[in-house]
Design a protein around this nucleic acid. Structure first.
Length: 129
DNA sequence: CGCCTGACGAAAC
DNA sequence: GGTTTCGCCAGGC
């Protein structure tokens, strides 16, 4: 089996122009959903994977609907560049995020992911870019 | 229709 | 090296 084992869809199909779709919105959700358990990633990493590396903010904004879409997106596995749970305040409860992370085996200290650099999951790397 | 805000990031100071 | 500001892009008011 050769390296990447995706073989079902290509989340990298961005629409360069023309489409007013919420593609970006859904795209972010797709990538976030593929984050393996016990791993974390950053908004900028997802943005870069999609090609909008300069718009890390848009990724976070897209997460606004993470708990509204289905299936629900594990936004708790997405943190900022510092590994800090910047979006925990937007969860059902401010502590829900770290609770979920700890439950998956990720240690959270002071609202920050411990060993973030070790647990970091790069979408562009795993998806085979 | 225009200004502000926003779950980030990186550069500038 | 820490803190502050600008930039991104889209939605809300």
């Amino acid at each position: 089996m050769a390296a990447s084992k995706k073989g079902t869809e290509k989340p990298k199909s961005i629409r360069p122009s023309g489409s007013s779709d919420t593609n970006f919105f859904e795209l972010v959700h797709e990538v976030a959903r593929q984050i393996p358990k016990g791993r974390v990633t950053s908004y900028g990493a997802i943005a870069a994977c999609l090609g909008t590396k300069s718009s890390a903010r848009m990724v976070g904004w897209a997460m606004n609907g993470a708990h509204k879409v289905k299936p629900k997106v594990p936004a708790h596995r997405v943190v900022n560049r510092n590994g800090m749970l910047s979006g925990k305040a937007h969860f059902e409860t401010p502590t829900k995020m770290e609770e979920l992370l700890k439950k998956e085996g990720i240690k959270v200290k002071d609202d920050t992911v411990v060993e973030f650099g070790r647990l970091f999951w790069d979408p562009a790397q795993e998806l085979g870019v």
